[in-house]
């Protein structure tokens, strides 16, 4: 393991011991003496490295182990096996100097104090993270500018909308200019405009500060817009680690061909018709057949327009996960 990587994880594993509990007092009393433990694997043999300045998307269905991994990286969970290092620290020791260089954003209501103006919560974080005055003022100005916080700072948190609160929450986490940023579902529950604004902000923050960002999201748009690289996990296991485009190449055996015809015709013989609207027909064909099918379409039909596209990333990922389920 070299020190140069910002995050390095080897054979990381997290097993939870879950005690089964039956209803009723008698069972509860019996449980005091003898409990039925069951092992639940949260994360199983993960290995990856993230270099300084990367933005990496962490994908997987619910319960895949994304949040568990983020919590281990931030130091909230102790790994069951394997090694992990973040900025050269062992996260679970939660050394002060480590905590001052990272941030974990996990949903609402964790940094901000409900009843008082946002700026007062920020001031508190300034004291807690020992941010020098000049740096604090500069960062605050930058964040206010990027996230458009100016009109929000003096309002009590309870008077903010969900999106406004999320913006302030993120700002509160970034006042100390963390070098590593873990974002767990940063855009969940927000409207489309706010999602885009948060996304733009994360990209800009990464560009300006060179911070390393690891984010999980349900919204593929977040991942497509931000991450050159994604890590795909399922049932705690790594399925893929690499560039987004390579994911599609590797996992999607199909391409889609969109065709516009001069006059309607049935295209069933060419491939599977997956969409048809007015004069536009979408076909799904195996990758290997793309070239011959395209050639045949152009010679045999009166084509106005034809394009070959990759299937949408959601479809690819869904395909991977359903395949996995079948294997399991």
């Amino acid at each position: 393991m070299t020190i140069s990587a910002t995050i390095s994880v080897e054979h990381l594993r997290k097993v939870y011991r879950v005690y089964e509990r039956e209803a009723g007092l008698r069972a509860a009393l019996r449980g005091l003496i003898q409990r039925h433990a069951q092992e639940v694997i949260g994360v199983d043999d993960l290995t990856f490295r993230i270099e300084s300045g990367e933005i990496v998307g962490f994908l997987g269905p619910n319960g895949a182990g994304k949040t568990t991994t983020l919590k281990m990286l931030a130091g909230l969970l102790y790994p069951s096996a394997g090694t992990l290092q973040v900025l050269g620290y062992l996260p679970w020791r939660r050394e002060r100097s480590f905590l001052r260089q990272i941030a974990l954003v996990m949903g609402q209501r964790q940094q901000l104090i409900w009843d008082i103006p946002v700026i007062d919560s920020f001031e508190l974080n300034r004291a807690i993270y020992r941010i020098p005055s000049a740096q604090y003022r500069q960062t605050l100005d930058e964040l206010t500018d990027l996230l458009e916080l100016a009109s929000l700072l003096q309002k009590p948190v309870r008077n903010l909308s969900l999106g406004e609160r999320m913006k302030c929450e993120i700002a509160a986490c970034l006042l100390h200019r963390p070098r590593v940023l873990f974002l767990d579902e940063p855009t969940i529950g927000l409207d489309v405009v706010m999602q885009r604004r948060i996304r733009d902000f994360v990209r800009e923050y990464n560009r300006r500060t060179g911070a390393t960002v690891l984010l999980t999201s349900h919204y593929m748009a977040d991942v497509e817009a931000l991450c050159q690289r994604i890590i795909l996990i399922h049932h705690g296991k790594m399925l893929f680690d690499g560039e987004l485009t390579r994911l599609i190449e590797r996992f999607s055996p199909y391409k889609t061909i969109a065709v516009r015809l001069q006059e309607p015709a049935s295209l069933d013989p060419y491939g599977e018709v997956i969409g048809q609207s007015e004069d536009r027909i979408t076909l799904r064909v195996p990758k290997s057949a793309v070239a011959p099918v395209t050639a045949r379409l152009l010679t045999e039909q009166a084509v106005i327009d034809l394009s070959v596209e990759d299937p949408p990333i959601e479809a690819v990922i869904e395909h991977i996960f359903t395949q996995q389920e079948e294997v399991v």
Binding site: I113, I116, D120, L124, R130, P156
Partner: peptide, 21 residues
């Protein structure tokens, strides 16, 4: 001294918060 600064800020925040009630 820095711990004192945290306390001062924490006190200010807590006072502001509790004054709401």
């Amino acid at each position: 001294r820095q711990l004192l600064a945290v306390y001062r800020q924490q006190l200010k925040t807590a006072l502001a918060e509790q004054l709401q009630y």
